[in-house]
């Protein structure tokens, strides 16, 4: 089989939405470069392969694995460890693997509550109140389902990660650029960036890529975008729209802000930012025009969900990593 000469490629989804997989397919004909240069050995969304096939591979035999999704249950963790062992380059692909993303917001609630909500809300059709069991005996033997962990972890909170590719999902042109780079490296025409680098993104902030006009920011109230007429050219934050651009890594060509919506932060913390939300708190506090505690409180009422505003994508990757109910009750 000639294919065996090609380097091996894998892609996996753990706790994620599937959008990263779509983003990869969205690179259009560049996907043919992947096929031309790699043998795809494992990619559950695109091909049939079993975990035991991967288990049977030699350690380090997969050249490149794109891993999307956070680690929410023991199956996620098992495959993360397995693919780490089998792969030379493990890439945390997309916001979930890098920093937890939307699934990471569940870290504000205890896992038991999440399960309860999933099986027991008004919108759930579960008249007999049936809950999943971790294991169940059938005539053929015992069957089990993955066990949920108290919180969701980012990929690098579980295994060693070589590269990070942020975005929810990563922009197709960035995926294309990374594939070009890897192909060049394979042909000896380029070198890999240092281990631990963020790839497929910029090194500054969304504000840096944003073309909106900026003056002095002095905010007397925060507004929801649908409540006001937006000036199409002026910085959104200046207009009182809570825009996360100041803390967010560049790389998307300021996609949302140029379309008239605030940046919600999907490219994660900008270079050098330790805690994404803390950076935003600092930024927002700097532009609020008030020195009176009561007035400040009234202005801040305009941000009804600060934890969600400041940590929408980064909660699992933040310094606190979870809400108190999650770490207390598990």
């Amino acid at each position: 089989m000639t294919d065996n000469a090609k380097p091996k490629f894998a892609m996996y989804w753990a706790a994620s939405c599937g959008g990263c997989e779509i983003a990869v397919l969205n690179i259009h004909e560049k996907i043919l470069d992947v096929d031309a240069n790699f043998e795809v050995v494992f990619w559950p969304v695109a091909m049939d392969a079993k975990y035991k096939d991967v288990e049977a591979m030699e350690d380090g035999s997969i050249l490149l694995t794109l891993f999307n999704g956070g680690i929410r249950n023991d199956e996620n963790e098992h495959i993360a460890r397995l693919l780490r062992r089998k792969s030379q380059l493990l890439v945390a692909f997309g916001s979930c693997a890098c920093e937890g993303c939307i699934p990471g917001l569940a870290n504000l609630s205890p896992a038991g509550e999440i399960v309860h909500t999933a099986f027991n809300t008004v919108s759930t059709d579960n008249p007999h109140g049936i809950y999943p069991r971790a294991s169940f005996d059938v005539p053929e033997g015992e069957i089990t389902i993955p066990k949920i962990f108290p919180t969701l972890r980012t990929l690098d909170q579980v295994v060693d990660v070589d590269y990070y590719m942020p975005g929810c999902p990563p922009e197709s042109h960035q995926i294309g650029a990374v594939i070009d780079l890897v192909v060049k490296v394979l042909h000896g025409e380029a070198q890999l960036p240092p281990k631990g680098s963020v790839i497929g993104a910029g090194n500054s902030t969304v504000c840096d890529e944003c073309t909106r006009k900026r003056n002095v920011k002095s905010i007397t109230s925060f507004k929801r975008i649908y409540d006001v007429e937006i000036d199409p050219e002026l910085c959104l934050l200046e207009q009182g729209i809570p825009c996360n651009g100041p803390a967010t890594r560049s790389g998307c060509n300021a996609r949302c802000v140029s379309a008239g919506a605030q940046c919600i932060g999907c490219y994660g913390p900008a270079e050098g930012v330790v805690d994404y939300g803390a950076r935003l708190i600092a930024a927002f506090a700097s532009v609020i025009d008030s020195t009176d505690p009561e007035e400040i409180e009234a202005i801040l009422d305009g941000i009804p969900d600060p934890a969600g505003q400041f940590y929408r994508f980064n909660l699992a990757g933040s310094l606190l990593k979870a809400g108190k109910p999650a770490w207390e009750k598990g």
Binding site: N73, G112, A134, S135, F149, P150, T151, R153, K324, A326
Partner: peptide, 24 residues
Amino acid sequence: PLNWGKSGGGRPTTEDGDSPSSVL
């Protein structure tokens, strides 16, 4: 005490869970 990260762990929440690992 704030007990940050004290109990959470990565422990499965099911009773029979037996592979403790730390989340936080």
